[in-house]
Design a protein around this nucleic acid. Structure first.
Lengths: 120, 120
DNA sequence: TATTAATATGAATAAGTGTTCATATGAACG
DNA sequence: CGTTCATATGAACACTTATTCATATTAATA
């Protein structure tokens, strides 16, 4: 009967301590994980995915994007703001137009994996 | 003065038609893009990123996850539900425990790219 | 300078989402 | 069978967010 008597420490739950330690050792910092979540949050929206996919083909001005998406320039502009904040796009001004492009090619690679996952 | 007279079609905006056509030709279907957005939406949350990172190291039961995250089992369970719905995790039952693991390794590759993007 | 086109932004509203709390299910075990 | 532990789920609340509308900015141009 003695074999289920708790040790000096309280029994708690039936966890797997070796797993806990292993995982804790390898987990990135909480902040880094939050930054990643924020990045995915920026990617996790219909309009923004469509914008990014369009920009993955070629540089485009806001006006082009409104045509491609069939949305108001205000709505597009608000979403571009989010993408700018996440450093997913950069832009340059040329006269009255502002041209947007992808900030780097991480997005493309992430999209490739996501496409594969979706198409299974 | 005749050179800015509209043609038979109304003038609309100063878009770049060659870009529009090029992008439209290459864009995946709207549905596919929505599925991708939903995938990123599932990835775009602190708790879920932490869960997935933990599972990327080893299979874990819900109880282990509550310990690692320092959260209630209810909160964890609700998030696992979302991850299940997005087919990001699978699970198997073993007695009273339910063990979760990543559904495939797309997530790992996506995480690698995201980490690189965050660390720049 | 006044006007117009392209883009940006603030406020407001409607829809979505994460956690907690209470409760339910499901399995082992006395 | 009744209890206990592990997990799941429904409802509610607080919080976030995407779009629209109105308005501001910025640049070209008459």
């Amino acid at each position: 009967m003695a074999d289920h008597v708790p040790s000096d420490v309280c029994q708690e739950r039936m966890v797997h301590p070796e797993n806990l330690e292993f995982v804790r050792r390898e987990m990135p910092d909480f902040e880094v994980l939050c930054d990643m979540a924020d990045l995915f949050k920026a990617l996790g929206e219909r309009t923004r995915v469509r914008i990014l996919f369009a920009l993955s083909r070629t540089e485009l001005c806001v006006c082009d994007l409104t045509e491609i998406l069939g949305m108001s320039s205000s709505a597009v502009s608000h979403q571009l703001r989010v993408l700018r904040a996440s450093k997913l796009v950069t832009f340059r001004r040329e006269g009255k137009n502002v041209f947007y492009r992808l900030a780097d090619d991480h997005v493309q690679k992430i999209f490739e994996q996501a496409l594969e996952h979706v198409r299974e």
